[in-house]
Computed example of a mutant assay.
Amino acid sequence: MKIGELSRRTGVPTRMLRYYEEQDLLHPERSDNGYRVYGPTAVYQVQQIRGLLDSGLTTEIIRRIMPFLDKPDDILMHPRCLTPEVDALLRGEAERIQQRIECLARNRDAIYAYLAAIQDAGRR
């Protein structure tokens, strides 16, 4: 399939698909006229990339673990993938995500406190 069809089937803009290729996450073949041609597994690969990006992983980490992922619902790494370097990357990423969660929770709590204070002031 061509890039436009992959975009339609995944909901990912063609610009992002090109970016995934630049980041060495997707590997389309090229037709004689230079058009990108994606195989049948490309839809699943894009779904996995989206899911991993949405979870906060970087393209560097995704590039390292993509060869070990089979299906969009099975984001389980093969034990051979967990080298000490990848282990350190994933642990660092998990800590960064945890810090973001804590920051978001503080922001959420501050917004609720602000809304409560405004509502209390309006009742007086």
Rank of each mutant, 00 (worst) to 15 (best):
T14P: 12
T14R: 09
M16W: 00
L17N: 10
Y19R: 04
E21G: 08
E22G: 11
Q23D: 11
L26R: 05
L26S: 02
L26D: 00
H27C: 04
P28W: 02
E29I: 04
R30L: 00
R30H: 03
R30M: 01
S31Q: 08
D32L: 14
D32P: 15
N33A: 11
N33L: 09
N33T: 13
G34L: 06
Y35C: 13
Y35N: 15
R36Y: 11
V37D: 06
V37R: 09
V37Q: 14
Y38L: 00
G39R: 08
G39I: 05
P40N: 05
P40G: 04
P40R: 11
T41Q: 15
T41L: 07
T41H: 15
A42D: 07
V43Y: 06
V43P: 05
V43W: 04
Y44S: 13
V46F: 07
Q47E: 03
Q48R: 09
Q48N: 11
Q48F: 03
Q48H: 03
G51L: 01
G51N: 01
G51K: 00
L53A: 05
L53K: 01
L57F: 02
T58I: 07
E60D: 06
I61P: 06
I61V: 12
I62Y: 02
R63G: 13
I65N: 15
M66H: 02
L69D: 05
D70S: 14
D70G: 07
D70A: 10
P72E: 09
P72G: 03
P72F: 08
P72D: 05
D73E: 08
D74H: 04
D74P: 07
I75Y: 03
L76T: 04
H78I: 09
P79E: 01
P79F: 01
T83P: 07
P84R: 15
V86Y: 00
D87N: 12
L89K: 12
L90E: 14
L90K: 12
L90N: 11
R91D: 14
G92T: 04
G92K: 05
E93Y: 05
E93K: 12
E95R: 07
R96Y: 14
I97E: 09
Q99L: 12
R100L: 11
I101Y: 06
I101H: 06
I101S: 04
I101W: 02
E102L: 00
E102T: 01
C103K: 02
L104N: 03
R106W: 12
R108I: 03
Y112G: 07
Y114Q: 14
Y114G: 13
Y114C: 10
Y114H: 10
Y114W: 08
L115V: 12
L115I: 05
L115H: 11
A116M: 06
A116Q: 12
I118C: 07
I118Q: 10
I118T: 15
Q119N: 11
D120Y: 14
D120I: 13
R123F: 01
